[in-house]
Protein backbone atom coordinates (compact mmCIF):
# COMPACT_ATOMS: atom_id res chain seq x y z
CA UNK A 1 0.00 0.00 0.00
CA UNK A 2 1.39 3.34 -0.94
CA UNK A 3 -0.13 6.59 0.14
CA UNK A 4 -2.93 6.01 2.61
CA UNK A 5 -6.21 7.02 1.06
CA UNK A 6 -5.05 6.58 -2.50
CA UNK A 7 -7.52 3.77 -3.09
CA UNK A 8 -10.29 5.84 -1.61
CA UNK A 9 -9.59 8.72 -3.96
CA UNK A 10 -9.40 6.40 -6.95
CA UNK A 11 -12.85 5.12 -5.99
CA UNK A 12 -14.14 8.65 -5.57
CA UNK A 13 -12.90 9.43 -9.07
CA UNK A 14 -15.03 6.58 -10.42
CA UNK A 15 -18.17 7.80 -8.70
CA UNK A 16 -17.48 11.37 -9.84
CA UNK A 17 -16.98 10.20 -13.41
CA UNK A 18 -20.27 8.33 -13.31
CA UNK A 19 -22.12 11.20 -11.71
CA UNK A 20 -20.87 13.90 -14.07
CA UNK A 21 -21.00 11.57 -17.06
CA UNK A 22 -24.70 11.09 -16.59
CA UNK A 23 -25.25 14.75 -17.50
CA UNK A 24 -23.71 14.45 -20.94
CA UNK A 25 -25.34 12.86 -23.94
CA UNK A 26 -22.59 10.34 -24.57
CA UNK A 27 -22.62 8.95 -21.07
CA UNK A 28 -26.32 9.18 -20.45
CA UNK A 29 -27.24 6.20 -22.55
CA UNK A 30 -24.59 4.07 -20.89
CA UNK A 31 -25.17 5.23 -17.34
CA UNK A 32 -28.86 5.90 -16.99
CA UNK A 33 -30.67 2.68 -17.64
CA UNK A 34 -33.98 3.19 -15.87
CA UNK A 35 -37.32 4.04 -17.45
CA UNK A 36 -39.77 6.53 -15.96
CA UNK A 37 -42.66 4.06 -15.81
CA UNK A 38 -45.62 4.56 -16.40
CA UNK A 39 -44.96 7.69 -18.51
CA UNK A 40 -42.27 5.87 -20.39
CA UNK A 41 -42.42 2.18 -21.20
CA UNK A 42 -39.60 -0.15 -21.93
CA UNK A 43 -39.75 -1.63 -25.43
CA UNK A 44 -40.32 -5.37 -25.04
CA UNK A 45 -38.46 -7.92 -27.12
CA UNK A 46 -40.63 -10.12 -29.26
CA UNK A 47 -40.00 -13.24 -27.19
CA UNK A 48 -41.14 -11.58 -24.01
CA UNK A 49 -43.86 -13.50 -22.25
CA UNK A 50 -46.33 -12.97 -19.46
CA UNK A 51 -49.59 -14.94 -19.30
CA UNK A 52 -51.23 -17.27 -21.81
CA UNK A 53 -54.17 -16.37 -24.03
CA UNK A 54 -56.33 -18.37 -26.45
CA UNK A 55 -56.10 -17.70 -30.15
CA UNK A 56 -59.20 -17.34 -32.31
CA UNK A 57 -59.11 -16.79 -36.04
CA UNK A 58 -61.89 -14.22 -36.36
CA UNK A 59 -62.17 -11.24 -34.07
CA UNK A 60 -65.93 -10.87 -34.69
CA UNK A 61 -66.75 -14.43 -33.66
CA UNK A 62 -64.19 -15.38 -31.04
CA UNK A 63 -66.03 -18.35 -29.55
CA UNK A 64 -66.92 -19.86 -32.93
CA UNK A 65 -63.44 -19.64 -34.41
CA UNK A 66 -61.24 -20.47 -31.45
CA UNK A 67 -58.65 -23.10 -32.06
CA UNK A 68 -58.94 -24.78 -28.68
CA UNK A 69 -60.65 -28.18 -28.82
CA UNK A 70 -60.72 -28.75 -25.03
CA UNK A 71 -58.34 -31.70 -25.22
CA UNK A 72 -57.10 -30.86 -21.70
CA UNK A 73 -53.45 -31.55 -22.51
CA UNK A 74 -52.41 -28.16 -21.14
CA UNK A 75 -54.49 -28.76 -18.02
CA UNK A 76 -52.62 -31.96 -17.22
CA UNK A 77 -49.19 -30.69 -18.20
CA UNK A 78 -49.40 -27.32 -16.43
CA UNK A 79 -46.87 -27.56 -13.57
CA UNK A 80 -48.72 -25.39 -11.01
CA UNK A 81 -52.14 -26.63 -12.22
CA UNK A 82 -53.57 -23.20 -12.91
CA UNK A 83 -55.73 -24.15 -15.92
CA UNK A 84 -59.27 -25.48 -15.52
CA UNK A 85 -61.21 -26.73 -18.53
CA UNK A 86 -64.72 -28.10 -18.91
CA UNK A 87 -65.63 -29.43 -22.32
CA UNK A 88 -68.80 -28.08 -23.91
CA UNK A 89 -71.73 -30.43 -24.59
CA UNK A 90 -74.83 -29.93 -26.71
CA UNK A 91 -78.41 -30.53 -25.47
CA UNK A 92 -78.13 -34.29 -25.95
CA UNK A 93 -74.94 -34.38 -23.95
CA UNK A 94 -72.73 -35.09 -26.92
CA UNK A 95 -69.24 -33.60 -26.36
CA UNK A 96 -68.40 -30.66 -28.57
CA UNK A 97 -64.84 -29.90 -29.54
CA UNK A 98 -64.65 -26.63 -27.66
CA UNK A 99 -64.36 -25.62 -24.03
CA UNK A 100 -67.36 -24.47 -22.04
CA UNK A 101 -65.21 -23.22 -19.20
CA UNK A 102 -61.60 -22.23 -19.63
CA UNK A 103 -60.14 -20.56 -16.55
CA UNK A 104 -56.59 -19.52 -15.92
CA UNK A 105 -55.71 -18.42 -12.43
CA UNK A 106 -53.03 -15.82 -13.06
CA UNK A 107 -52.17 -15.63 -9.39
CA UNK A 108 -50.97 -19.23 -9.69
CA UNK A 109 -49.65 -19.18 -13.26
CA UNK A 110 -45.86 -18.91 -13.30
CA UNK A 111 -45.48 -17.94 -16.94
CA UNK A 112 -43.44 -20.98 -17.85
CA UNK A 113 -44.86 -21.45 -21.35
CA UNK A 114 -45.21 -25.22 -21.04
CA UNK A 115 -48.89 -25.06 -22.04
CA UNK A 116 -47.83 -23.40 -25.28
CA UNK A 117 -45.22 -26.04 -25.97
CA UNK A 118 -47.49 -29.01 -25.41
CA UNK A 119 -50.51 -27.67 -27.33
CA UNK A 120 -50.83 -29.61 -30.61
CA UNK A 121 -53.32 -27.14 -32.10
CA UNK A 122 -51.43 -23.83 -31.66
CA UNK A 123 -54.43 -22.68 -29.67
CA UNK A 124 -52.73 -21.20 -26.63
CA UNK A 125 -49.97 -18.60 -26.85
CA UNK A 126 -48.12 -16.28 -24.53
CA UNK A 127 -49.23 -12.69 -24.22
CA UNK A 128 -46.90 -9.83 -23.37
CA UNK A 129 -49.36 -7.68 -21.46
CA UNK A 130 -48.01 -7.19 -17.97
CA UNK A 131 -50.44 -4.65 -16.55
CA UNK A 132 -52.75 -7.10 -14.86
CA UNK A 133 -53.07 -5.61 -11.39
CA UNK A 134 -56.48 -5.91 -9.77
CA UNK A 135 -58.13 -4.73 -6.59
CA UNK A 136 -58.76 -8.22 -5.23
CA UNK A 137 -56.79 -11.36 -4.70
CA UNK A 138 -59.19 -14.13 -5.67
CA UNK A 139 -61.90 -13.96 -8.32
CA UNK A 140 -60.42 -10.86 -9.85
CA UNK A 141 -57.30 -12.75 -10.77
CA UNK A 142 -59.05 -15.60 -12.56
CA UNK A 143 -59.32 -15.10 -16.28
CA UNK A 144 -62.33 -16.70 -17.94
CA UNK A 145 -62.90 -17.67 -21.53
CA UNK A 146 -64.06 -14.24 -22.83
CA UNK A 147 -61.01 -12.49 -21.30
CA UNK A 148 -58.65 -15.09 -22.67
CA UNK A 149 -59.81 -15.12 -26.27
CA UNK A 150 -57.72 -12.87 -28.48
CA UNK A 151 -57.55 -12.77 -32.24
CA UNK A 152 -54.85 -14.10 -34.48
CA UNK A 153 -54.38 -10.54 -35.74
CA UNK A 154 -53.45 -9.49 -32.20
CA UNK A 155 -51.03 -12.40 -32.01
CA UNK A 156 -49.48 -11.31 -35.30
CA UNK A 157 -49.17 -7.79 -33.97
CA UNK A 158 -47.34 -8.69 -30.73
CA UNK A 159 -45.15 -11.49 -32.08
CA UNK A 160 -44.81 -11.09 -35.86
CA UNK A 161 -42.05 -13.63 -36.47
CA UNK A 162 -43.47 -16.39 -34.34
CA UNK A 163 -47.05 -15.84 -35.52
CA UNK A 164 -46.18 -15.86 -39.21
CA UNK A 165 -44.32 -19.14 -38.73
CA UNK A 166 -47.37 -20.63 -36.98
CA UNK A 167 -49.68 -19.37 -39.73
CA UNK A 168 -47.48 -20.87 -42.43
CA UNK A 169 -47.38 -24.19 -40.59
CA UNK A 170 -51.15 -24.30 -40.13
CA UNK A 171 -51.72 -23.40 -43.76
CA UNK A 172 -49.37 -26.13 -44.95
CA UNK A 173 -51.08 -28.66 -42.69
CA UNK A 174 -54.47 -27.65 -44.04
CA UNK A 175 -53.36 -27.97 -47.64
CA UNK A 176 -51.87 -31.36 -46.91
CA UNK A 177 -55.10 -32.46 -45.30
CA UNK A 178 -57.12 -31.21 -48.25
CA UNK A 179 -54.84 -33.06 -50.67
CA UNK A 180 -55.09 -36.23 -48.63
CA UNK A 181 -58.86 -35.96 -48.43
CA UNK A 182 -59.25 -36.02 -52.23
CA UNK A 183 -57.48 -39.38 -52.88
CA UNK A 184 -58.95 -40.80 -49.70
CA UNK A 185 -62.45 -40.06 -50.98
CA UNK A 186 -61.60 -41.78 -54.25
CA UNK A 187 -60.15 -44.80 -52.50
CA UNK A 188 -63.09 -45.08 -50.17
CA UNK A 189 -65.52 -45.22 -53.07
CA UNK A 190 -64.97 -48.76 -54.36
CA UNK A 191 -64.04 -50.22 -51.00
CA UNK A 192 -67.57 -51.20 -49.79
CA UNK A 193 -68.27 -52.80 -53.14
CA UNK A 194 -65.25 -55.04 -52.79
CA UNK A 195 -66.30 -56.28 -49.39
Amino acid sequence: MGLLGKGLFAGMAVTARNFIGSYFDGGRKERLFTYQYPEEKMPLPENSRTFPFLVCDDEQDPVGTMRCVACKICETECPPQCIYIVMDRDEKGKPQQRPKVFDIDISVCMQCQICVEVCPFDAIKMDCDYEKSQHGRFDELVEHLPDLLKSNAYYNRIKPTEASAVDARLKAAQEKKAKKAVPAAKAEGPAPAAS
Partner: peptide, 9 residues
Amino acid sequence: QLLTENEVV
Protein backbone atom coordinates in the same frame (compact mmCIF):
# COMPACT_ATOMS: atom_id res chain seq x y z
CA GLN B 1 -10.77 0.74 -9.36
CA LEU B 2 -13.65 1.49 -7.07
CA LEU B 3 -13.11 -1.41 -4.69
CA THR B 4 -9.97 -3.50 -4.95
CA GLU B 5 -7.54 -1.07 -3.39
CA ASN B 6 -10.03 0.85 -1.34
CA GLU B 7 -8.58 1.13 2.16
CA VAL B 8 -11.93 0.63 3.86
CA VAL B 9 -12.57 -2.55 1.92
